[in-house]
């Protein structure tokens, strides 16, 4: 065996060793993504168990909701009709909130039924939140309803206001969740309060933004006004050129008419 051949064999052995080592990694168990979720509540009724997850503790603003529905001990329903109704009980009256109902199929990532709602005010002396979860098992036709108590923490990511057209709107900041210096993807939602229990998404208005640094007396340039992407979502880009206190002004417009101006205050580290 000459030197070249011995070198080739050595390289092959090293390469196979590397594959074996990486193969060991492949055999390790992937963590369940659900482990990253925050379990909000688990409730059972009849033969069904419903578990409600959120991505983080519920606070005023946009909150993702995930549902797992089991029939019996381990039979996870592959499909279910779930309707969520957020309900704020304020003694004298109650009201709901904007909500995105879960789809009938489990999502690809968590293998859960995903939806969302906007908590428009915090829990506290003013009132308390419940999620009324109505579930129908399409295989058995069984329907049931579960109330889940939710504690909503305070935040400043929701603006509720009455615009010049006498309509009451709910503007919610969704992204960036943690604004950074530079260019940020901006996502907000807009809903109209049609009644105490109805908050349809608004897609036919326009929104203009103006980031501003009050202490410096300037803003940032080349921002993209959020445009409607449907279902009440508006997407754009907001730029921050330094850390510190920022205020992002939002002007709600109907055509050329300014309906209302509000803002969100942010602190960038």
């Amino acid at each position: 065996m000459n030197t070249l051949q011995s070198h080739i064999i050595l390289i092959i052995i090293i390469a196979l060793s590397g594959l074996l080592i990486s193969g060991c990694d492949l055999n390790t168990n992937n963590p369940d993504p659900v482990d990253d979720l925050f379990e909000l509540a688990t409730s059972s009724i009849d033969n069904y168990t419903v578990t409600v997850y959120t991505t983080e503790p519920v606070s005023v603003g946009y909150n993702l909701l995930y549902f797992d529905v089991k029939r019996g001990a381990n039979d996870r329903l592959s499909s279910a009709e779930i309707t969520v109704t957020p309900l704020m009980d304020m003694d004298a009256h109650s009201h709901s909130a904007p909500v995105w109902q879960p789809g009938p199929e489990r999502d690809a990532f968590y293998q859960l039924f995903g939806g969302a709602f906007i908590a428009t005010m915090p829990s506290g002396d003013m009132g308390s939140w419940q999620l009324i979860i109505d579930v129908t098992d399409p295989q058995t036709g069984t329907s049931f309803s579960l109330p889940v108590d939710v504690t909503v923490a305070q935040s400043t990511r929701v603006k509720v206001f009455t615009a010049s057209n006498e309509q009451r709107y709910i503007l919610t900041w969704i992204q960036p969740a943690e604004p950074k210096v530079g260019s940020n993807n901006l996502v907000v939602t807009l809903h109209r309060r049609e009644s105490m229990m109805s908050f349809p998404a608004v897609d036919d208005l326009s929104i203009e933004i103006r980031p501003w640094m009050e202490s410096m007396g300037h803003g940032s340039s080349n921002n993209e006004h959020p445009a409607s992407t449907g279902s009440g979502f508006y997407q754009g880009r907001v730029n921050f050129n330094m850390s510190g206190d920022w205020r992002v002004y939002f002007t709600l417009k109907d055509g050329a008419e300014d309906l209302y101006e509000t803002w969100f205050d942010l602190m960038l580290n």
Binding site: M213, S215, M216, M242, S243, G244, D245, M267
Partner: peptide
Amino acid sequence: VDEQVSPMYL
């Protein structure tokens, strides 16, 4: 100077 305002970095 106003300590209520956050410092900024650039």
